[in-house]
Design a protein around this nucleic acid. Structure first.
Lengths: 219, 219
DNA sequence: ACCAAGTCTGAGCAATTGCTCAGGTCGTTG
DNA sequence: CAACGACCTGAGCAATTGCTCAGACTTGGT
């Protein structure tokens, strides 16, 4: 039984290359034109095959989108799952280090094709199956983060579950907004430093080495 | 000269009511069906007028979307601008109170029609004029927040500008995600409390009344 | 060389949809 | 009442687009 997104299984090397080219072309066309204006004819043309070939491997336009989303998700999970797993280490990783690593990993996942992820999960009509998968993955991450918060001696939060959810959502959302509308061009480390400081110490954070005892804002 | 989004200016009371009904119908139809599937015929039907009437007041489908966006923005600005203005008070408002007020105001703006704002600024093809307006408003807010951070004696951050940007984006993004995918149903105060705690004190925050003096990163 | 299965082609069908326009209805003014 | 303009109607046009199908080309095994 073929995958629900595929119509025909490629068996020879030639057709496997065709399918790869189609998924890549779909990602490019969707990224550039959006979902509605990303026509199947354009995708086939971009992939260098005819429209008939496209419909031999994909049941409909949605199947193409799903294939792109699955590929994107696969890469994201591959990069983040091991990182999140380290939160279970003993002793638990320090907040600043852990959050910085996560932020840098998320940034790396979004530097190229920044519009694609947004398109996949906000603009385009992904089937519930995929959306549920993402929600489940986020929930799993939040659960592991909550455990980590509870096990960390330097962390004292009232509501570990809600705070963990906030952390997961904030990291994902802020990285997104940063890569799409950066207020200052490209200074990624500045973004990471400020975000880590905000999340670990809040507005009272960023204590400089040996600060004056007088009151005074930063800088 | 008519507004660029309008074709004909309504002069009598009857037609003004028609235009209002059309904008409201467009908001409902776009919210329910998305932009692409929100057909102009359906909007006209929902508003109780014929398709011809719709095109007497709106040049094209985009003009309808722009009218909805402008209305939405008008309400948002009306609710948030006065709140942000209080950040310039002397003495500066306490972080917890100010952030809590902003969060509650944002929540109130999104409890009904949670999908609409997302659709307007993420799915639909808004003209640059509108997007630039939003970016400018966010930038103005971030500027006022940065000033407030610098003037607040209890706040010590390294990079007030970047932190202010992070606060604005985090509040907007987290409220969005909360109203669309709340992990636990509807406990808004819990969300506000946890967010305020995270943003003001970070992971070392939420000091319970009379905590022990034992080790702990808390402040 | 031959053939069966795998692979590819692309003109065109069916359905959707944004939008027009010729003509109708209603309210207001002289 | 008459007439003018504001307002409204809705069948249908033009263009787009997802997708089909009948047949041609390629490959690999015998």
């Amino acid at each position: 039984m073929p995958s629900p997104t595929r119509r025909r299984r490629p068996s020879q090397g030639r057709s496997r290359a065709t399918v790869e080219a189609l998924v890549e072309a779909a990602a490019q066309v969707f990224e550039r034109h959006g979902y509605a204006a990303g026509t199947t004819n354009r995708i086939a043309e971009r992939a260098g095959v005819s429209i008939g070939t496209l419909y031999q491997y994909f049941a409909d336009k949605d199947a193409l989108l799903v294939a792109v989303a699955e590929e994107h998700l696969r890469r994201g999970a591959a990069a983040l799952v091991p990182l999140v797993a380290t939160l279970a280490d003993d002793p638990p990783p320090a907040p600043a280090a852990a959050l910085g690593d996560l932020l840098r990993a998320m940034l790396a996942l979004h530097v190229d094709r920044p519009r694609l992820h947004r398109l996949l999960f906000e603009e385009a009509p992904l089937p519930e199956r995929i959306v549920d998968g993402v929600v489940a993955l986020e929930a799993e991450f939040a659960g592991r983060v909550a455990d980590w918060l509870r096990r960390s001696p330097s962390v004292t939060v009232d509501d570990a579950d809600t705070t963990a959810w906030l952390l997961v959502q904030a990291i994902e959302g802020l990285v997104h907004r940063w890569v799409i509308h950066p207020p200052t061009a490209g200074d990624d480390e500045r973004f990471v430093a400020a975000t880590v400081a905000l999340l670990t110490h809040g507005l009272g954070g960023a204590v400089r080495p040996a600060p004056r005892t007088t009151a005074g804002g930063g800088r």
